[in-house]
Structures are given as structure tokens and as C-alpha cells.
């Protein structure tokens, strides 16, 4: 127990928490934007995969890291547009279309990766984002390593949250997005096109998810592996419920989750002798289910979530 407590005192633990949280923050915020507009996006797992692959491939082919991020976001938005074509314009089942998008996006990622790099036994690597040295702050004893030894992309992930909060709660666009998910008839009455608002939200949310996937290949690691998303997208869907559709809580939820995950890795070294490692690996998934159970009673989901909007039809 003493050992477990000491983990919290190491800067490495906090640095790892922040690293693990980043893709979850972007995925959760992306999914949250889609659901706030009334569209469940189960394509997230595949969109994160395609983001991880396309951003990495852009850099591997000689592109620049930042344009690689833009490219990943662009590809993610394309799959978002496909999802909204099916769910927003054609009104198809959001569950089934989302699963279809996940299947399509991941299989296309694997196919493209294999086509461009036919026979690679060891995964090829890129030069990922490097930690930046903040003068003064990075040299602080504990906080320097824990908070100020990260890559620019890491700070970007955290900076996106206040931007999304501002847009969602303080701008007309954000109001339209939230209303599209609560009462589409009401904004239709204001002369705003519900379908356009929803499509835009799904595309933007999907772009964020894709960048979240790209964080893994371009900042956390330097290579693309086939199973690398490994359920992170599904965990984000659970985190949105845990956050009861609030971006601020989503950030906290992702950090809490990442902290427990970082703790799990370190606890393995302490208790790994008595408890098989598979049980530690189960923890993130068990925690996601537990998180949903805890928040389920208080969850206030967007009223029009899963309900397709057809002009002139009453809901």
C-alpha cells in the first residue's frame, strides 16, 4: 500500500497520465459534439484508426507534422460527412451506420497501410513531435517533468477543450448545435437548417476524433500498429455518458480515467507477482462500465439523440 501511495509522488506518473489522457480527451470531445447535435457516432473507433494511419503516413511520405495533423483531421471529417449522409440526410439507424463506418474506416486504413508499405516486418518509424522546453518552467523540480515536458500536440489537446466550451456555450453556432440535439423543430422554426448544423457538428467532431487517433502515432509513439486504437474509441463513448454530455466534465473524466490507467501500469510492477497482468489490462474497460453505471441515474442525454429529423414530419 505504501508503494502504491509513492506512485502519486513521482513526476513520471503525472506525465504519463497527461500522455494517456490526450487521445481520450480529443475522442471524447469529438463524440460529445456529435451527440450534442443529436447524432451518435459509433464510427469513432474506425475514425481514430484512420486518423492515426493517415497522419502518420503523411509524415512518413515526407510531409510536415502540423500539416499531417490537418490531413488527419480532413480524412476524419470525410468519414464524418459519410456518417452524416447516412444518418442525417437519409435517416438511417445511427447504430448500424456507425458500426459500418468503423468497419470501413479501419479496413481501409489497414488496406492503404499494406499497399503503401507492402512487406515491413518491423514497423517503420517517423520522427514524432518532440517535447518542448519551456524556459524556466521546464526546469522546475517536480512540475517541470510532470507538466512542462510535453509535446506541442499535448498542449494543443488541452487547449481545444476551452475553445469547444466557448463555442458550444457562448456562440450562436454552439447554440444551434445544442438545439439540434435537443429540439430540432425549434431551430427549424428559426430558419436554421437542422441538417446542415448536424452535418457540420458530425464532421467537426469526427475531425477531432481523427486527430485524437493521430496523437498516438505522431506524439505518443512513432509507428502505426494494426491494433493500436484497441477500444479507445468505445471508451470515449462511455466517457461522454460519464461526463453527462458536458465538455468540462469530459476533460476531468478523461484525466481521471488516464490517471487510473497510468496507476494500473505502475501497480503491475508492484503487484504483478500475485495478480496476472491480464487483470490489470482489464481495468480500463471495467472502469468505463463502472463510470457509466455511476452516472447513469444522473445522465441527461440530449433529447433528440438517435432521432432522425425529416422536415415536415412530426416527431
Amino acid at each position: 500500500m505504501i508503494d502504491l501511495f509513492e506512485i502519486f509522488l513521482t513526476a513520471g506518473f503525472w506525465a504519463a497520465t497527461i500522455r494517456i489522457a490526450c487521445p481520450l480527451i480529443l475522442g471524447t470531445i469529438g463524440e460529445l459534439i456529435c451527440e450534442r447535435a443529436g447524432v451518435l457516432n459509433l464510427g469513432i473507433e474506425g475514425i481514430m484508426t484512420v486518423g492515426a494511419m493517415s497522419g502518420w503516413m503523411w509524415v512518413y511520405q515526407g510531409g510536415d507534422l502540423w500539416t499531417g495533423l490537418v490531413f488527419a483531421a480532413f480524412v476524419g471529417a470525410l468519414f464524418g460527412l459519410l456518417h452524416s449522409l447516412f444518418t442525417v440526410y437519409l435517416g438511417l439507424s445511427q447504430h448500424v451506420s456507425g458500426i459500418g463506418i468503423t468497419m470501413l474506416a479501419s479496413s481501409l486504413s489497414f488496406f492503404v497501410f499494406r499497399m503503401m508499405l507492402p512487406s515491413s516486418t518491423t514497423p517503420p518509424k517517423i520522427v514524432p513531435f518532440k517535447p518542448i522546453h519551456v524556459p524556466g518552467l521546464s526546469d522546475l523540480p517536480f512540475f517541470g517533468e510532470a507538466l512542462f515536458s510535453h509535446t506541442p500536440m499535448t498542449y494543443l489537446c488541452f487547449a481545444i477543450v476551452p475553445v469547444v466550451i466557448y463555442v458550444l456555450y457562448r456562440t450562436p453556432v454552439g447554440l444551434a448545435v445544442r438545439m439540434a440535439g435537443e429540439s430540432p423543430m425549434a431551430i427549424e422554426a428559426q430558419g436554421i437548417n437542422v441538417l446542415t448544423v448536424r452535418t457540420g457538428a458530425v464532421a467537426a467532431g469526427s475531425a477531432l476524433m481523427a486527430v485524437g487517433g493521430a496523437y498516438l502515432t505522431m506524439s505518443a509513439f512513432d509507428a502505426f500498429y494494426f491494433g493500436m486504437i484497441n477500444g479507445r474509441g468505445w471508451i470515449c463513448v462511455a466517457l461522454v455518458i460519464f461526463a453527462s454530455w458536458r465538455p468540462g466534465k469530459a476533460l476531468l473524466g478523461a484525466l481521471l480515467f488516464a490517471g487510473l490507467d497510468a496507476l494500473q501500469v505502475r501497480a503491475q510492477q508492484v503487484a504483478g507477482a500475485f495478480i496476472p497482468y491480464q487483470f490489470f489490462l482489464m481495468l480500463p474497460y471495467v472502469l468505463s462500465i463502472a463510470a457509466m453505471v455511476i452516472m447513469a441515474r444522473r445522465a441527461r442525454y440530449p433529447k433528440a439523440l438517435l432521432v432522425p429529423f425529416r422536415r415536415g414530419e412530426r416527431i
Binding site: H95, V237, Y285
Partner: peptide
């Protein structure tokens, strides 16, 4: 508890 079964069944696969 009205917990969405999509996510629970998906996550149980990994467990």
C-alpha cells in the same frame, strides 16, 4: 439503470 447496452457489450468483448 438504463445504461446503454452498446458500450457495455462492446467493452465486455475486451474484458
Amino acid at each position: 439503470l438504463k445504461v446503454d447496452e452498446v458500450v457495455t457489450t462492446l467493452l465486455l468483448n475486451f474484458i
